[in-house]
Amino acid sequence: MAISKAQLALLAVAMAATAMSAAGAYTGCAKPRKVTVQNLCGRDLALSEQPLANSGQLFGAGFVLRHGTHAEFPTCLWTGRVSAPGAALVEFHVGPDGGAWYQVDNKQAGAPVKVTVTPHGAPLQGHCPAAGCRDHGQCFADAVPGGNCHAVDELKIIYYSS
């Protein structure tokens, strides 16, 4: 049985679409972005993620970040949540154009692990404060809504000891 040209063309389109969705491919990134996670909390952290809005895996299941280390995850765009045991949930979006929004509770007084989210860029544009809490009770904003922070090259999540 022979495959017609139309069936072959349809098959090629379907395979290309599958490959793009499987790889989370987005070709509109003018400049790669990254998410960096750093562990300063005094113990190893088992991180988990919940990708949202058709985002692919950032680091995958079973990722353990050793104390005193950091890991960088290059991405074009990503939306989702990152969590660690004993720390507040971090939710964020990094866009292909450098726009970002992020939020983390800044009422972490009883948490055994503190967490901050800080954007980095050269230079950042708009309203881009650090969010969350550091060690020794120093806290910042709890949310940076969409549309206000631009030119983000890196979103850095840092876990601290209490």
Rank of each mutant, 00 (worst) to 15 (best):
A9N: 09
L11S: 11
L11T: 11
V13F: 05
V13N: 11
A14R: 03
M15P: 00
M15E: 05
M15V: 15
A16I: 13
A16C: 06
A16F: 07
A16M: 14
A17Y: 10
A17R: 07
T18F: 15
A19E: 05
A19L: 14
A19N: 01
A19M: 14
M20V: 13
A23T: 09
A23P: 00
A23G: 10
G24Q: 04
G24E: 07
G24Y: 03
A25N: 01
A25W: 15
Y26R: 14
Y26N: 14
Y26K: 14
T27Q: 08
T27S: 04
T27W: 12
G28I: 02
C29D: 01
C29L: 02
P32W: 06
P32G: 06
P32S: 15
R33G: 10
R33A: 10
K34T: 10
V35I: 12
V35W: 00
V35Q: 00
V35S: 03
T36K: 05
V37F: 03
N39H: 03
N39A: 09
L40N: 15
L40S: 11
C41N: 10
G42I: 09
G42N: 02
R43Q: 13
D44G: 14
D44I: 09
D44L: 14
D44R: 11
L45G: 07
L45C: 04
L45V: 08
L47K: 04
S48F: 01
S48G: 11
E49H: 06
Q50D: 10
Q50L: 14
P51H: 02
P51V: 02
P51R: 03
L52M: 13
L52G: 01
A53N: 15
A53M: 11
N54V: 04
N54D: 07
S55P: 07
S55Y: 12
G56W: 00
G56P: 01
Q57P: 02
L58Y: 12
F59H: 05
G60L: 08
G60T: 08
A61G: 09
G62W: 09
G62V: 04
G62L: 06
G62R: 07
F63M: 11
F63L: 14
V64I: 12
V64S: 02
V64K: 05
L65H: 08
R66N: 05
H67N: 15
H67T: 12
G68R: 08
G68D: 11
G68L: 04
T69W: 10
H70A: 13
A71R: 13
P74K: 09
T75R: 12
C76V: 04
C76Q: 05
L77G: 11
L77N: 07
L77E: 13
